[in-house]
Amino acid sequence: MTRTPVIEACGLTKQFNSFTAVDGIDFSIFDSECFGFLGPNGAGKTTTMKMIYCLSPRSSGELSIMGMDPERQPVAIKSMIGVVPQDNNLDPELTVAENLVVYSRFFGIPRKVYKERIEELLEFMSLDKKRNARIKELSGGMKRRLALVRALLNKPRILILDEPTTGLDPQVRHLIWEKLRQLKLSGVTMLLTTHYMEEASQICDRLVIMHEGKILLKGNPHQLVQEHTPNYVMEFSFNGCMVRPEKLAEKYACHIEIYGNRCFVYADSEPVLNQIRTDTKIDTRIIRTSNLEDLFLRLTGRGLHE
């Protein structure tokens, strides 16, 4: 079965003067899927999102949203997209409910419809008690939930979530994940950027890993981990450890990565790692299955990207 993509990008590029923030990326996003964009700060995720929701014109390449060109039909496209931007840009001069009323009007939603929908969504996000609060009285988590409510006012077909959970406590994070799963079931196509690998592997059907404006890998998160990293990792610190890591790699034919004084030994089977631990008397309890974070860090490096 061939599905037509809801969003299709081909050679999508964005330049700021001479700096290339997004460098010729290709991707297709299908109906009702959750598509993740992973990448260190500055990878070009937000810039890509902004091109999709028509805030920033592309420099070159093709981009089609529901068959439309963002340059030519921004009104039609934006009326079907909901955006949770990276930085909350809630209106500080208005209360929670007023924010939502004003925003509904931007979409041309009739009064009768938005009144009901606002109540519904506030309840959905457990914000109904904060209806008349001012924005600055809200906690970080509440602001984020309100941004999500705002993004849902127009019943979007595509929901763009730019780091929806960054900086939130685990409770709020789990609440938001739960809501996103519900939304996904209702058929909304979601684009999600995040720094939380757990979030990406739990919610995303497919994702891309971006770095310096390019896509390094794309696919299903679980398959990617399986295909691109050995199944198991042992972690240990060098302090007081006599082992020369290069020697280990040679002797046991395993993959080794070192960051500072932390060493990661990758192997496809757990017994191999146990063997290494016994043989070398390395003092560690951490032998675990490898995950998306290992893959991410291997691809994008463990150094800072700022």
Binding site: P74, K78, P85, F106, F107
Partner: peptide
């Protein structure tokens, strides 16, 4: 930024 993310 918020306004321009809507049809405006």
């Amino acid at each position: 930024d918020a306004i321009l993310s809507t049809p405006i």
